[in-house]
């Protein structure tokens, strides 16, 4: 399983990547593998919405299960990955690049709950 070192991880199995003003959010390789084949992503938050850490921004459906998606940090949604509409399986195939979920701006600086790749890997025991 792959946990890139340049990302930060939430205990709720999301990753974040900050580049300039924008922070990209997705779910981890561990999370996608636990879910199995992802068949539908329903992002209920819209660009412009400001959400807090812990808020639900959508749901992700695998064949067998449905899970809520939680904001690992707060911020204002700037973009949603429209490519997931036709290809939700890109979350399984490429969780850190093509399978990203949303981008936010004004990310809350307090990301104290986030952990690094090594700590996340240890947490999931992978």
């Amino acid at each position: 399983m792959n946990f890139p070192e340049n990302l930060k991880y939430a205990k709720s199995h999301e990753w974040v990547r900050t580049e300039g003003d924008t922070t990209t959010i997705g779910i981890t390789d561990f999370a996608q593998s636990e879910l199995g084949d992802i068949v539908f992503v329903d992002i209920t938050a819209a660009p412009g919405d400001t959400l807090n850490a812990g808020d639900v921004f959508g749901t992700i459906e695998a064949v067998k299960t449905v899970s809520d998606l939680y904001m690992p940090i707060g911020g204002t949604i700037s973009e949603i990955n429209d490519g997931l509409g036709d290809a939700p399986e890109s979350i399984n195939n490429d969780p850190y690049e093509d399978g990203w979920l949303i981008k936010i701006t004004n990310a809350s600086l307090d990301d104290g709950e986030m952990i690094d790749a090594a700590a996340y890997q240890e947490m999931v025991g992978a």
Binding site: G36, D37, V39, V63, K64
Partner: peptide, 9 residues
């Protein structure tokens, strides 16, 4: 076993 490769495949 719930799946090996994946449910869809």
């Amino acid at each position: 076993p719930v799946y090996y490769k994946g449910i869809v495949a």
